[in-house]
Computed example of a mutant assay.
Amino acid sequence: MKTDVVIYNLLHEITAQFPEVKALLSIYDEGETTYKMEAFSKATTHAFALGNVEQALRYLNYVAKKLINAEAKVIEHIDVYYVETLFWGASPHTIALGWPLVPESLQTLYINFHGKAPLK
């Protein structure tokens, strides 16, 4: 199915571009694409929590660029499984550090779902 292929390609590209997350994503079966995308989101939040802003920005900027001219299934995976999970369970310090650095397109998706920015 074409929509599945675009998601598999996206996840393959993520692990190729960011090999440090490959082990994290590989704990899920190949078909568990939603969990893999959530794991990538959690890796972004975790990078902020560790103060690795540069790494978190690489992840965020990659995802924001993927939104541009993306197929509907890719947009859905980014919106529902990456953006909605950002800062889940994060400390106020992590949110204060990371939220202002989230690209506007991703902030918009986050606020559209949650109704507001993450609590600081």
Rank of each mutant, 00 (worst) to 15 (best):
70 A>Y: 06
71 E>V: 07
71 E>T: 09
71 E>P: 13
71 E>A: 08
72 A>R: 04
72 A>T: 12
73 K>F: 11
74 V>Y: 00
74 V>C: 00
74 V>I: 14
74 V>R: 02
75 I>M: 06
75 I>N: 03
75 I>V: 15
75 I>H: 13
75 I>P: 04
76 E>Q: 15
76 E>R: 12
77 H>V: 12
77 H>F: 15
77 H>R: 08
78 I>D: 00
78 I>Y: 01
78 I>G: 00
79 D>R: 13
79 D>N: 12
80 V>A: 13
80 V>H: 14
80 V>E: 13
80 V>S: 15
80 V>P: 01
81 Y>G: 05
81 Y>M: 06
81 Y>W: 15
82 Y>A: 01
82 Y>M: 06
82 Y>W: 04
83 V>S: 09
83 V>G: 02
84 E>S: 11
85 T>G: 00
85 T>H: 07
85 T>A: 13
85 T>E: 07
86 L>G: 00
87 F>Q: 10
87 F>E: 07
88 W>Q: 13
88 W>I: 08
89 G>Y: 12
89 G>T: 10
90 A>Q: 06
91 S>A: 10
91 S>F: 04
92 P>Y: 04
92 P>S: 03
92 P>M: 04
92 P>I: 12
92 P>G: 03
93 H>N: 08
93 H>E: 12
94 T>N: 04
94 T>H: 00
94 T>Q: 03
94 T>V: 07
95 I>T: 05
95 I>L: 02
95 I>Y: 00
96 A>L: 08
96 A>V: 08
97 L>G: 04
97 L>W: 02
97 L>Y: 01
98 G>L: 03
98 G>I: 01
98 G>N: 03
99 W>K: 11
99 W>P: 01
99 W>F: 05
99 W>H: 04
99 W>Q: 02
99 W>Y: 09
100 P>M: 14
101 L>Q: 14
101 L>F: 05
101 L>S: 07
102 V>E: 06
102 V>Q: 05
102 V>G: 05
103 P>A: 11
103 P>H: 06
104 E>K: 13
